[in-house]
């Protein structure tokens, strides 16, 4: 697999943080997932992609956490 950032520069060596093992890997060794609560792109190592159980559970938990972070301020506001 290889992820490139398109235009103006290709940066396959750009380092990203895997949301599953928290290791820093290059884009070329990553697979894209959903977004962080701040809107930035989240990635995981390619190697996790082929471990079905880890892949599903880890991303499900990540999405739930990010959603909770996104909705937290609104909940506080409504509580006030």
């Amino acid at each position: 697999m290889a992820i490139y950032t398109a235009f103006p520069h290709d940066r396959p060596t750009q380092q990203i943080l895997c949301i599953i093992c928290y290791e820093s890997v290059s884009l070329s060794q990553a697979t894209a997932g959903s977004l962080h609560a701040d809107g930035s792109q989240a990635f995981a190592c390619d190697r996790h992609f082929y471990t079905r159980e880890t892949w599903i559970t880890a991303w499900a938990m990540f999405d739930a956490e990010q959603d909770a972070m996104t909705h937290e301020p609104q909940c506080l506001e409504s509580a006030v």
């Binding site: 290889a2 490139y4 950032t5 943080l17 701040d38 930035s40």
Partner: peptide
């Protein structure tokens, strides 16, 4: 190292 902030996202990613 964290992912790039949303404001610095490239135009596209090609996987």
């Amino acid at each position: 190292m964290s992912a790039a902030p949303a404001s610095r996202l490239p135009d596209w990613f090609i996987d």
